[in-house]
Amino acid sequence: MRYFALTIIGRDRPGIVSRVTEILYHMGCNIADSSCSILGGQFAMQLIIAHPELVDGDQVQANFAPLEQDNLSVFVRTLKPGGERRPELSGDLCLISVYGSDKPGIVYRVAKELGERNINITDLNTKLIGSEQRPVYVMMLEATLPEGIDVDSLEAILEPVRLELGVDISVRSINPVEL
């Protein structure tokens, strides 16, 4: 099996998923992991796909030429062997909410504090809400904490950022419960 990362984005409308997956089906591709969502007015698809024979990313890309004509942008990345496997994500899982009046640097300042401490962001969503006069920025991110950092210490780490940006930040544990 050879794995590829496939990204497709374009103006949202009904039928995008069906067109994309029809092509994948006829190519004989498996969809391993995928996450697709509407972002602004665009529909963005990100998929890890596998094919038993194809090895060349350009060959994969060629199959999507009809989509490009329909104004969907398609990008294919050929994964190195093992690139499809998720690394072991140990450590406590937490959700960080950051929200406040919109201003530059909210994502960067928070991400910088996390990156410097080896806190791994596994999911990140941001959205601009509120009115045009009073825009509010909302960021939700999930991260795994390395040994030695817990929810309380992370909150303390982010306290200076909270004061500097004048935003609200909360951190909570969202470890899955196995039942």
Binding site: I174, N175, P176, V177, E178, L179
Partner: peptide
């Protein structure tokens, strides 16, 4: 709301 996992459905929550 809790994020649940299950021994009978490994690797998914």
């Amino acid at each position: 709301v809790m994020r649940e996992g299950c021994m009978s459905v490994p690797d998914y929550t």
